[in-house]
């Protein structure tokens, strides 16, 4: 399978196999009018299998979203066909307007204009809770 290399853009590499599409949706890549390649189940020396997303455009992406979906992923910034920066990703302490609270008793269920904010409450378990009602975020 051939996927053209990109000149100016971003490669999100080492995504856990199966998480690529989730990340694709949460980053809103489906709404972009730029070339995006979604490669799944590639052999990986580090992870066994991995997913890769290549975005052939110089656009901002949310590292918080990437860190939430898979903090072990890496982000490669490409300029003029050359790798100029490799970013290590970490789980964000706060996550704003990425996921919604599922608790029907939460104030965010009736006041739709409120930001949906979650805070990291357990790093080992990758657990986030709504700052308003403390409900645990649904699993990805």
């Amino acid at each position: 399978m051939n996927v053209d290399s990109i000149r100016d853009g971003i490669v999100i590499d080492h995504i856990a196999a199966g998480c690529g599409m989730k990340l694709y949706r949460l980053l809103g890549l489906e709404n972009l009018n730029v070339p995006v390649a979604m490669i799944t189940n590639v052999a990986s020396a580090r992870r066994g299998r991995k997913d890769i997303i290549k975005i052939d455009a110089d656009i901002p992406v949310s590292f918080d979203v990437i860190g939430y979906v898979d903090p072990a992923a890496t982000v490669n910034i490409i300029r003029g066909g050359t790798l100029i920066e490799k970013k290590q990703i970490d789980m964000p302490e706060m996550l704003s307007n990425v996921i919604r609270c599922k608790n029907p008793r939460c104030i965010t269920s009736t006041e739709q204009e409120l930001d949906n904010i979650f805070r990291l409450t357990d790093r080992a378990k990758k657990e986030y809770r709504c700052i308003y009602c403390d409900t645990k975020a649904a699993s990805l």
Partner: peptide, 25 residues
């Protein structure tokens, strides 16, 4: 009745807010 309502109030009020109960929270 909504959980987290007091936090929303506190984030927007310019005076102190005491939560006197926000749903079951």
């Amino acid at each position: 009745p909504k959980e987290g309502a007091a936090l929303v109030a506190a984030n927007n009020a310019t005076v102190p807010v005491i939560n006197a109960g926000d749903g079951g929270h």
